[in-house]
Computed example of a mutant assay.
Amino acid sequence: MTYLCGMKPDEPHLLYSGLSPQATALLTEHARETAHPRKTLLLSEGERDEELLLVLEGSVRRYVMREERCVLLDFAFEGDAATVTLGSLPGGVSRHCIETMEPTRLLRIPRLRIDLLMAENAELADWGRRLCEERLRRYEAYFADYTWMDKGRQYERLLREYPQLLQRIALKDLASYLMLTPQSLSRIRAELR
């Protein structure tokens, strides 16, 4: 089954999946937990991207503003990395914005620290690789499966495979993710009723 925004139908995604207690302790020793209300801008495009952000509870959206339009790239839920998983982009500058969609608790790990931990610990390096692979699978599934589909079929598939999305995501965000206007999504929804 492919992933969408880190959510698997009928199976929760675990942040520390497969990590030993020792590796988990190493990771959390250098992390700090923060809590944020809904609609908190965590990172703006062009700002320094100095921390790996992992969602413990809640949800965030990643987006860019283009031609005065919000273009949604993806979502992150419990157990997902909200930022690019490994390494720093050239200059360590973010190429997107990250904002909470509901009250959210994050685990924050400085990028320099996570890079050192992964260089020194094979288990954490493997964990980081799996996080990166997961993100690549999401993008691959999105571009290979969703983007070529008729928009009505995209919406139907989302409803069928991820009904919980509608409980947690604003319709305008879902429309942006599907590259539709909110009005077009409303028409599609009305036709399916």
Score class of each variant (00 low, 15 high):
E33T: 11
G79H: 03
M65H: 14
E99R: 02
V93F: 01
R38M: 09
E50V: 10
E68M: 13
R66H: 13
E57F: 06
L26M: 08
E29A: 15
V93H: 00
E57W: 05
A76L: 13
Y63T: 07
H96I: 05
F75S: 04
R61M: 06
E47Y: 07
T83M: 10
R69L: 09
E78C: 14
I98Q: 01
L27R: 01
L42R: 00
H36D: 06
D74G: 14
H96M: 14
M101F: 05
M65L: 14
C97F: 15
T28D: 01
L52R: 00
L52I: 08
E68H: 14
G58H: 08
L72S: 08
D74S: 14
L27E: 06
V64R: 00
E51G: 07
P90T: 11
L72F: 09
T83Q: 02
L56R: 03
R69C: 06
C97D: 01
G46N: 02
E67V: 08
A31G: 14
V84I: 12
M65Q: 09
A76I: 09
G87A: 12
E57A: 07
V55E: 03
L86T: 14
G79C: 09
P37W: 03
H36A: 13
T28R: 00
E29C: 15
T28C: 12
I98L: 05
R48P: 06
S44N: 12
L53Y: 12
A81Y: 00
A76E: 10
T40K: 02
G91I: 12
G58R: 01
G46C: 05
T34N: 03
G46A: 08
L42I: 05
V55F: 00
E78N: 14
E47V: 06
R32I: 13
C70L: 15
G46K: 00
G91Q: 03
H30R: 10
E51I: 05
D80I: 13
D80N: 15
C97P: 02
L43F: 01
R32D: 07
L52E: 09
R95W: 05
V55M: 05
H30Y: 11
L26F: 02
R38H: 07
T100L: 05
C70M: 15
L42A: 04
V55Q: 01
A76C: 15
Y63R: 04
S94Q: 03
V71I: 09
E68S: 13
G58V: 06
L41I: 15
L56I: 08
E99N: 07
T85A: 08
E68Y: 15
T34V: 07
R61A: 11
I98K: 01
M65E: 11
F75R: 03
V60P: 04
C70G: 06
R48F: 10
E29I: 11
V55D: 02
L56D: 08
V60D: 03
M101C: 09
E68L: 13
C97K: 02
E68Q: 14
E99F: 07
E57L: 10
T40W: 02
L73E: 04
L73W: 06
R38V: 14
G92C: 05
